[in-house]
């Protein structure tokens, strides 16, 4: 296991590449989810408002 993590002495470079990429991909996905959720919330609020006005 340690040997695997050491990457033959290239650990900072290999893991620096892979982890930064994994991290930023997760950030992108989380940001998308957050954006979608807040947009949906806003659309619902707007829909409710127009419904109230219609009544």
């Amino acid at each position: 296991m340690m040997e695997f993590l050491a990457m033959g002495g290239y650990a900072p470079y290999v893991w620096g590449s892979y982890l930064v990429m994994a991290g930023l991909l997760v950030v992108e996905m989380v940001q998308l989810r957050y954006r979608r959720r807040s947009l949906m919330g806003w659309l619902r609020r707007m829909a409710r408002l127009t419904d109230q006005e219609a009544k």
Binding site: F4, G8, Y18
Partner: peptide, 25 residues
């Protein structure tokens, strides 16, 4: 891909394990 690239594939005879960056680069 990660399993093959990081575990299964052997180190490069010249660049050692650093070449594994290629799989995402």
């Amino acid at each position: 891909g990660l399993y093959l690239g990081l575990v299964v594939a052997p180190p490069d005879y010249q660049q050692g394990d650093s070449y594994r960056i290629m799989y995402i680069h």
